[in-house]
Amino acid sequence: DYFTVDMEKGAKGFGFSIRGGREYKMDLYVLRLAEDGPAIRNGRMRVGDQIIEINGESTRDMTHARAIELIKSGGRRVRLLLKR
C-alpha cells in the first residue's frame, strides 16, 4: 500500500528519523518516531514504512545525506510517499 503523508515541522523538527540510503546498499525507511512529534500526531506514519518519495523526488539510489537534505529543504513542510 502506498500513501502520502504531509507534515508541518514542530519545535524539534518533523519528529521522525530514517535509516538506509545508497551508501548502506538499502532503501530508505522510517527508523523512529519521536514521542509527541508531528509524525506521531499525524498518525499515519509507522516505524518500518519505506520512504518512496520526499517532496516529489524519488528516493531510488538516494544517499542518506541527500534524503535528510531534501526533508530539510522543504522548509516548514514535508510531503512523503510511503509504502507499507
Results as ranks from 00 to 15, higher is better:
D1Y: 04
D1F: 04
Y2C: 07
Y2E: 04
F3E: 04
F3I: 15
F3S: 08
T4H: 03
T4E: 05
T4W: 03
T4L: 07
V5P: 00
V5I: 14
D6T: 08
D6M: 05
D6Q: 07
D6P: 00
M7C: 08
E8F: 03
E8P: 05
E8C: 15
E8T: 06
E8Q: 08
K9W: 10
K9H: 03
K9V: 07
G10Y: 05
G10I: 01
G10L: 03
K12E: 09
G13V: 02
G13F: 02
G13I: 01
F14W: 12
F16D: 01
F16Y: 01
F16M: 07
F16E: 00
F16S: 01
S17L: 08
S17N: 07
S17C: 13
S17E: 13
I18D: 00
I18N: 00
R19N: 15
G20K: 03
G20T: 09
G20D: 02
G21F: 01
R22D: 08
R22Q: 15
E23L: 02
E23F: 02
E23V: 02
E23W: 02
E23N: 06
E23S: 04
Y24T: 15
Y24N: 14
Y24A: 15
Y24P: 07
M26C: 11
M26N: 06
M26Q: 15
M26R: 12
D27G: 12
D27K: 08
L28N: 00
L28I: 12
L28V: 06
Y29E: 15
Y29Q: 11
Y29F: 14
V30A: 02
V30M: 04
V30Q: 00
L31E: 13
R32M: 14
R32F: 07
L33Q: 03
L33W: 02
L33Y: 03
L33S: 03
L33P: 03
L33V: 12
E35N: 12
E35K: 09
E35S: 09
E35G: 10
E35Q: 08
D36N: 12
P38L: 07
P38Q: 14
A39T: 05
A39I: 06
I40T: 12
I40W: 14
R41F: 10
R41N: 13
N42A: 13
N42Q: 10
G43E: 13
R44W: 07
M45K: 01
M45C: 05
R46C: 11
R46P: 01
V47S: 09
V47G: 09
V47F: 04
G48Q: 05
G48I: 01
D49S: 02
Q50M: 11
Q50E: 14
I51Q: 00
I51N: 01
I51T: 00
I51S: 00
I51G: 00
E53P: 00
E53K: 10
E53W: 05
E53Y: 06
I54C: 02
I54K: 00
I54W: 01
N55I: 01
N55G: 04
G56C: 12
G56P: 00
E57W: 10
E57D: 13
E57V: 11
S58L: 10
S58P: 10
T59N: 02
T59E: 01
T59M: 04
T59V: 08
R60I: 10
R60T: 14
R60N: 13
D61P: 03
D61V: 06
M62R: 02
M62T: 06
T63R: 07
T63I: 04
H64I: 07
A65D: 13
A65P: 06
A65I: 08
A65G: 08
A65H: 09
R66Q: 06
R66F: 05
R66A: 09
R66G: 08
A67D: 01
A67V: 04
I68K: 14
E69F: 13
E69I: 05
E69Q: 11
E69M: 12
L70S: 12
L70Y: 07
L70I: 14
L70A: 10
L70C: 08
L70P: 00
L70R: 11
L70E: 15
I71K: 02
I71H: 01
K72I: 07
K72A: 14
K72F: 06
K72L: 07
S73K: 13
S73L: 13
S73F: 07
S73V: 12
G74W: 03
G74C: 13
G75V: 07
G75H: 11
G75W: 03
G75E: 13
R76F: 12
R76S: 13
R76D: 09
R76K: 14
R76Q: 15
R77Y: 13
R77G: 11
R77V: 09
R77P: 02
R77N: 15
V78F: 02
V78R: 00
V78T: 10
V78D: 01
V78G: 02
R79A: 12
R79G: 07
R79K: 14
R79P: 00
L80R: 00
L80S: 00
L81K: 15
L81R: 14
L81P: 00
L81Y: 15
L82D: 01
K83A: 15
K83R: 14
K83Y: 09
K83C: 12
K83I: 06
R84E: 11
R84S: 14
R84D: 05
R84M: 04
